[in-house]
Nucleic acid binder design. Structure first.
Length: 331
DNA sequence: CGTTTTTGACCGGCGC
DNA sequence: GCGCCGGTCAAAAACG
C-alpha cells in the first residue's frame, strides 16, 4: 500500500532529485499558514518587482523585507549544508517584526544540518541543482552518465525536460500560494524522507507548468518547491483586479515575498565567486521576463564548462548550472 | 454538478 | 535482463 514510504534508505541509484538544470535557494518564511486567510503576519509593505529589485541595486540589504528575511545562517545550512560551520548560532533573526508565529526552532535546522549534514546535503544538493550533463566530456565518470546517456546523445539529445527551479521555504504549509491555481496529480513517497512529495500542475489549460512540493525530512519547517516550466499566462491573481504592478493580493504578496527573500538570501550569501554572482544576476534577470512573473521560472538550459567549479564548490554548485536562456534583458 | 484530491497502477530511465 | 525509482495516469472519492 502506501505505507512503504519511510522504509528504505539509500536505495542506491536514485538521488532523490534527478534534476537537470536546476536552481535552488532557500527562503525563510516567517509566517506559517498566514496565506490562507489571515495574513496579518505579513507586513503591509509595498512590493517590489524583480525589475525593481534589479534596478534598485543588488545591495538591498535594507530592504523592507529585511525584517522578514531571516537567518542567513540557516540559509547557509540548508543551502550549503556542509559549508555552514558557524551557522549553528545563527538563528532566527528578524523574526517578523513582532510576530513570529512559526514556533519553528531554527536550532533544528542548524543542529540537524550538522548531524544530517550528509543527508541534508544530499537532499539540498540534489534540489539545489544537480547536474546530469551528457556531454562528451563526461569525464566525471560518476555513476551517472554512461552508456545510456552516451547512446542517447549519440543519436539525439535526450528530451531535455524543462528547466526547473527549486527553492526552499521555511513554512508550515506545504503548498504555498503563489497566485496560480494548481491541481494535484500525484503524490509519491520520498526515499529518505517520511514526507511525501506532491506533484502539481497548473490548471490553466495551455499552461504546462508543473511543480512539486516536498518537505525536508530533517527540517519539517522547510519546504522544497520545485517549479518546472514557465507559465504562458498571467497569474489569475494578477488579472483579477488591478492591472498595476502594485497592490497585489495577499497571496501574491507572499509569493513575491518569497522571491524577494530568495534573492536576498542569495545575495546574503556572500560566499560566491564572481561567476556565481554573475549567474545570480542572470538568473534574476531571467526571473522577470517581461514584468513580473509571480513565480520563479525561466531559466536555462545550458550549463557545461563550469562543471569544473562544481567540483570545487559542490555546495554552491546550484548556481553553476543556472544560465538563463531568455535574453529578455534589455541593453 | 463541476472541479480537485486521493491513491494504486503503470511506464520509462537508469544502475547493477 | 532485472529491479529500483521517480514521475504520471486515471478511476474513484471528496469537496464546494
Amino acid at each position: 500500500m502506501s505505507g512503504d514510504h519511510l522504509g528504505r534508505v539509500g536505495g542506491g541509484g536514485g538521488d532523490g532529485f534527478p534534476l537537470v538544470n536546476d536552481y535552488a535557494a532557500l527562503l525563510t518564511h516567517s509566517d506559517h499558514g498566514g496565506f490562507h486567510g489571515m495574513d496579518d503576519s505579513l507586513p503591509a509593505t509595498p512590493f517590489f518587482s524583480f525589475s525593481d529589485y534589479l534596478q534598485g541595486g543588488l545591495g538591498v540589504a535594507d530592504h523592507h523585507y529585511g525584517q522578514l528575511v531571516v537567518d542567513a545562517s540557516a540559509n547557509t545550512d540548508v543551502f550549503g549544508a556542509a559549508a555552514s560551520g558557524s551557522g549553528a548560532a545563527g538563528k532566527l533573526s528578524g523574526g517578523t517584526g513582532g510576530t513570529t508565529p512559526v514556533g519553528t526552532p531554527n536550532s533544528s535546522v542548524s543542529s540537524s544540518s550538522t548531524e544530517a549534514a550528509g543527508e541534508e546535503k544530499e537532499e539540498v544538493a540534489a534540489a539545489a541543482v544537480a547536474k546530469e550533463e551528457e556531454d562528451g566530456s563526461a569525464d566525471k565518470s560518476s555513476k551517472k552518465v554512461n552508456k545510456a546517456a552516451a547512446a542517447r546523445k549519440k543519436g539525439e539529445q535526450k528530451r531535455q525536460r524543462e528547466p526547473r527551479f527549486a527553492f526552499m521555504t521555511k513554512s508550515e504549509v506545504d503548498h504555498l500560494e503563489d497566485g496560480y491555481r494548481w491541481r494535484k496529480y500525484g503524490q509519491k513517497a520520498v526515499k529518505n524522507s517520511p514526507y511525501p512529495r506532491s506533484y502539481y500542475r497548473c490548471t490553466t489549460q495551455k499552461c504546462s507548468v508543473k511543480k512539486r512540493v516536498e518537505r525536508s525530512f530533517q527540517d519539517p519547517s522547510v519546504v522544497i518547491t520545485t517549479y518546472e516550466g514557465q507559465h504562458t499566462h498571467q497569474s489569475p491573481a494578477t488579472i483579477r483586479g488591478s492591472s498595476h504592478v502594485l497592490a497585489p493580493p495577499p497571496a501574491m504578496q507572499s509569493s513575491f515575498l518569497h522571491q524577494e527573500l530568495l534573492m536576498q538570501q542569495l545575495h546574503g550569501h556572500h560566499v560566491l565567486n564572481n561567476n556565481q554572482q554573475q549567474q545570480q544576476q542572470q538568473v534574476m534577470r531571467a526571473m522577470n521576463p517581461n514584468m513580473y512573473l509571480p513565480s520563479p521560472f525561466l531559466l536555462l538550459q545550458q550549463q557545461q564548462q563550469q562543471q569544473q567549479q562544481l567540483h570545487e564548490f559542490p555546495d554552491y554548485g546550484l548556481l553553476q548550472d543556472i544560465v538563463p536562456s531568455y535574453n529578455t534583458d534589455q541593453p
